[in-house]
Design a protein around this nucleic acid. Structure first.
Length: 328
DNA sequence: CGCCAGGTAACCC
DNA sequence: GGGTTACATGGC
């Protein structure tokens, strides 16, 4: 599979309009996130791909000098039209919470001892979710009841076989498939070829749901967690990930066996605890912002030993080699 | 081997 | 309703 070359097409300056501090590095790069090949980060620069309809866009992002702007170099092919500029700007602004008010959370956190170190180390970090609802649902699906190494393997299989490979600004990255692009793929194929196991039969349900429900419709729903759980294969965890990440509800967070133990240790001083106990505790300490609080605690846990560390600048070439499959 | 992973649906009473 | 159990797969 040869990468498609995207050419430099546009430049954006995105203002940080939301109240509160903005931490460029820890907003775009999350120490706890596993490697997908959809993005790459060095100390000062980030790259990411986006699908906007069928268009494939690559962006290179850097922090503005005043910490209140993000500079975006846009790479695309010939289909990039003026209307895409606004949609991309909105998508980036939402994905990284540039217009969100972080102050209510930081004020609550100032009074919570367990939050002292995370708040200090990650000050100004916001939720990041470059994925749309469909894409984050697939990520959450691949996290269900398995190890990160297998999640990484399944992600690689899916993106290699059904996604795209693009090259821009000196880097090679994968890009997502759209619901329409996997509409014809059978559950059997997902299982046998992409090694999805029992998850294989739920992926077609995801594609069908998001072909019929566009992101705009979802904003109108009043109980998203409930709505999302109507999709076969989406339970409380996946629905909460979708609501907290793609819908950016700061009050919501998905509890799984992994963050359950982290939060139990940090908040309750025990090795493990019931999900309800954790949820209740965090909701009481951070009314309306429990999800943001959980984000800070979990990312701080991984800050010293990131799952996918920042790349040294000179590692990009090696990275490109690894991402290109050597097999036909 | 058996157990467990960054869960969920289907089944039981 | 609330408490089991099967579900695929790979790593240890």
């Amino acid at each position: 599979m040869k990468p498609r070359h995207l050419t430099h097409t546009d430049t954006l300056q995105l203002p940080i309009t939301g109240n509160g501090p903005f931490n460029f590095r820890h907003t775009l790069w999350k120490p706890s996130h596993y490697a997908t090949g959809l993005e790459a980060h060095t100390e000062t620069r980030s790259w990411r791909t986006f699908r906007i309809d069928s268009l494939i866009i690559g962006v290179a992002l850097t922090n503005g000098r005043d910490d209140r702007t993000i500079s975006v170099e846009v790479f695309a092919d010939g289909d990039y039209a003026p209307e895409h500029r606004d949609r991309l700007a909105r998508r980036l602004t939402t994905s990284y919470g540039l217009d969100e008010d972080l102050a209510p959370f930081t004020e609550l956190a100032a009074d919570v001892p367990a939050m002292r170190d995370p708040l200090h180390a990650l000050f100004g970090m916001r939720q990041s979710c470059p994925e749309d609802h469909f894409e984050i649902a697939v990520i959450a699906l691949l996290l269900q009841n398995t190890t990160i190494s297998r999640t990484t393997q399944m992600t690689r299989n899916l993106l290699t076989r059904h996604g795209r490979l693009v090259h821009f600004d000196g880097i090679t990255l994968r890009a997502w498939f759209t619901p329409a692009e996997i509409a014809a793929v059978t559950a059997e194929e997902f299982k046998e070829r992409d090694r999805l196991g029992y998850r294989a039969k739920t992926l077609p349900h995801f594609a069908a749901f998001f072909r019929d429900h566009h992101p705009e419709d979802l904003a109108a729903a009043d109980n998203l967690v409930e709505l999302f759980q109507q999709i076969k294969g989406v339970g409380p965890y996946t629905a909460a990930v979708m609501a907290s990440h793609a819908s950016r509800d700061p009050a919501v967070f998905g509890v799984d066996v992994w963050n359950r133990k982290i939060l139990a240790r940090r908040l309750l001083d025990t090795e493990d605890a019931a999900p309800e106990a954790i949820h209740e505790h965090l909701t009481r300490l951070f009314p309306g912002h429990a999800g943001t609080a959980a984000l800070y605690l979990v990312e701080h846990e991984y800050l010293r030993t990131p799952v996918a560390p920042l790349l040294p600048l000179d590692a990009i070439k090696t990275w490109n080699q690894e991402l290109r499959p050597s097999t036909s």
